[in-house]
Structures are given as structure tokens and as C-alpha cells.
């Protein structure tokens, strides 16, 4: 089901792009990643907006008063929360629903890159079953994995004085850190769970993705880097990039949520 609906169509689109760009798989990954980012941009914009509204609610005076007042009564607190959402025009699902819709596409994209590279006989055999038998795509199933200095099917190293330096893995870690840091939604509340989660993710995700980029095919590293840069551009277009967050000791400014009524 997952394969049929998500991974196989994405694999075929990726191979179609590969065909269009003259059998350059690296270029195909870059275009494909940007294309998916563009297609999912409206969802991302909604997510950012919803997420920011939820964050700003934490510093809302009325909400803080309600929390104090109904501290021991969870049912009443929930009722008041829903009333406040309605009054302020906040949709509590606006931040998570777009993410949930995007996630299968993003993971599918990642898997389709892995699949299209088909770096061993068993992987190629799987790919033969996934490729649509029209448009000449079935003739493309052994992709040219050479791109710039990289073999996209192999972990990347640049050899300097006999030492293999994982340039892409380092770039993955750096771009992931920058993206998570400058796009993090600020929080005024020290007990805000979402904020602490964001903070922790901004520390561990660069290491995690860097680890994957270090150990697995460099095609994935190219995807991670392009995806991070495209994400930065998306946030910048929405005016949500806070470059000051990269400076040590700088706390992002906190806006307060005004009543919309």
C-alpha cells in the first residue's frame, strides 16, 4: 500500500526528472527535492502559522489567568481553552495536521532516492518491479550515480593527505543545525514542552542526520542538504527566519498574541 501509493510514484517521478536532465542523478535529486518542497509549501505555511499561534498563546495574559484559575479542574480548563481558541481564531490542529500530511511525502521522497539508486543486484531487482513500463523509464533503471566528485550510491569522502573527510556529512549537520536554530519558534514559557522539544531536536537532529550522511549513500546527503536549504528559503519567504538566533547569547524576541475580536 505504502509502496504503491507513495514510494513507487515518487520513484518514477524521480526517474522521469533524471531522464529530463540528461541522466544526472544528482541534479534530479536536487530538482525533485525542491519540487516536493514547492508542492508542500502551502501546507508548511499553514503549519508555521498554526505553530506560531500556539506558541504565542503561551504568553497570552488571559490564557495564563485561566490556567491559574482552573488549575485543579481539567475539564473546565479544557472548556476555557477551546473557548479561547475560538475567540482568538486559533485552530489547534493547524500546526500538526499539515505536518502529518507532509511526513509521508518527505519519507517517501527519501525512500524513492534510496530505491532509484539500486546499488546492488537485489536492489535493482526491486526497482524493476517498481518502475512503470512506459515513457522509457524502464530503460533508466541503472542510473548513473556519478555526480561531481561523488558516487551517489556510496558514502562520500574527500581524500586529503590520505584521510577521508566526510564533507557532505559535515554540511548536512551544519545546515540541519542552522535550519532548526533560525526557524525555531520562540517561547516565553519555560515550561513549554513544545519549545523544549524543539531545542532538543535542534541539537540532536544535526548529529543524527550527519550520522546517516556519514554512513549511507551520498545521494541521501545531497537530499538532506537541499531539503535544509529549501526549508530555509521557505521560512525566509514567510518572514520567519531569525538569523540572530545563531549568535551566542541572543534570545529571539517574543511577540504577544493580541485578541482578534
Amino acid at each position: 500500500m505504502w509502496e504503491t501509493i507513495i514510494v513507487n510514484p515518487l520513484t518514477n517521478i524521480l526517474l522521469f526528472i533524471y531522464q529530463l536532465v540528461g541522466s544526472q542523478f544528482g541534479i534530479a535529486i536536487i530538482i525533485f527535492t525542491i519540487l516536493i518542497r514547492v508542492v508542500t509549501h502551502p501546507l508548511m505555511a499553514k503549519q508555521i502559522k498554526g505553530s506560531q499561534a500556539m506558541q504565542e498563546l503561551q504568553s497570552n495574559k488571559e490564557w495564563q489567568d485561566i490556567q491559574k484559575k482552573h488549575k485543579g479542574d481539567k475539564e473546565k480548563l479544557a472548556q476555557e481553552q477551546m473557548r479561547l481558541y475560538k475567540e482568538l481564531g486559533i485552530n489547534p490542529f493547524a500546526s500538526c495536521l499539515p505536518t502529518l500530511i507532509q511526513m509521508p511525502i518527505i519519507f517517501g521522497l527519501y525512500q524513492s532516492i534510496v530505491r532509484a539508486l539500486a546499488a546492488s543486484p537485489a536492489q535493482l531487482l526491486i526497482l524493476t518491479g517498481a518502475v512503470w513500463p512506459f515513457g522509457g523509464l524502464d530503460q533508466l533503471i541503472s542510473v548513473n550515480s556519478q555526480f561531481l566528485w561523488m558516487n551517489l550510491g556510496q558514502p562520500e569522502r574527500v581524500y586529503m593527505f590520505g584521510v577521508g573527510v566526510p564533507v557532505l556529512a559535515i554540511l548536512v549537520a551544519i545546515t540541519t543545525y542552522i535550519q532548526s536554530k533560525v526557524t525555531m519558534t520562540p517561547s516565553a514559557s519555560p515550561n513549554d514542552q513544545a519549545a523544549s522539544m524543539n531545542k532538543m531536536m535542534s541539537l540532536y537532529m544535526p548529529l543524527l542526520l550527519g550520522y546517516f550522511a556519514y554512513n549511507y549513500a551520498s545521494g541521501l546527503a545531497v537530499y538532506f542538504i537541499v531539503s535544509n536549504l529549501a526549508g530555509l528559503v521557505q521560512y525566509a519567504l514567510l518572514g520567519k527566519v531569525n538569523w540572530k538566533a545563531l549568535l551566542p547569547g541572543k534570545k529571539p524576541a517574543q511577540k504577544s498574541l493580541a485578541r482578534t475580536k
Binding site: 519519507f107 527519501y110 525512500q111 534510496v114 546499488a119 536492489q123 531536536m201 540532536y204 543524527l208 546517516f212
Partner: peptide
Amino acid sequence: LLVVSLFLGGCATGMTPS
């Protein structure tokens, strides 16, 4: 983080040549 790791790791095992 665990979910993301498992998912990425799971997908990446597809990269483990066989």
C-alpha cells in the same frame, strides 16, 4: 527523536547493499 531515528534507519537499511 526515536521515531525519526527508527524511520530513517529503517529506510536507510534499504541502502544496505544486498
